[in-house]
Amino acid sequence: MIIEIVSWIAVGLILVTSTAMLISRDWRISLAALALQYVAAFWLVTRHLPFVMASAKLITGWMVVAALGMTRLGLSSAEDTDEESSLLNGGWFRVILMCIVALVAAAVTARIEAVIPGLGLQVIAGSLLLIGAGVVHLGVTSDILRVVVGLLTLLTGFEVIYAAVESSILVAGLLSVISLGLGLVGSYLLLAGSSSPETENGA
């Protein structure tokens, strides 16, 4: 019973962190929310995978957050306001989008559980929220850090539900490598173009 309650708390945490990542303009808040989101995802993954495998995912996630954070920290503060101007920036709009994702997740969770029994309502709900939030994130931004955060969110959602159907160590390892790779590619893309060719040659 306690496990069920903690799992629902993890789902709630996913909803809060996803919404925070979506509406926050501050990259520090976004990355902190992503780090918390990995904790919630870790708990849901432990429902189907051994603790060690789930903790590998958590550590990978935190490493990605650290890599992105350190890269972003090294960039000039002028790029803090680099957010696109033509896209929809309204915070309320994003909240409404997350509400729609939450409603869809609430409506579909029980159906999926009926079709694929044994996954667990919390796992399905958490996974759908993460996937939905990731898709919304990718839909409303073209900022590189936000795109990478959106992809990582989506991938985490997939990992949560896929852990319930595939427990292979190789898959878990490769998914972790992909998460880490996304973080590194994101860091590279953030850094690309920020240094002048002269600096590169000089180095």
Partner: peptide
Amino acid sequence: LIPPTQKPSRGVVRFLIYQTLAMPFILF
């Protein structure tokens, strides 16, 4: 695709997004 001195283009970002989206669909 992106040399260190060049700003990432939209095409590269889309490439990354599309390739990443493909994987969950195929595995599932």
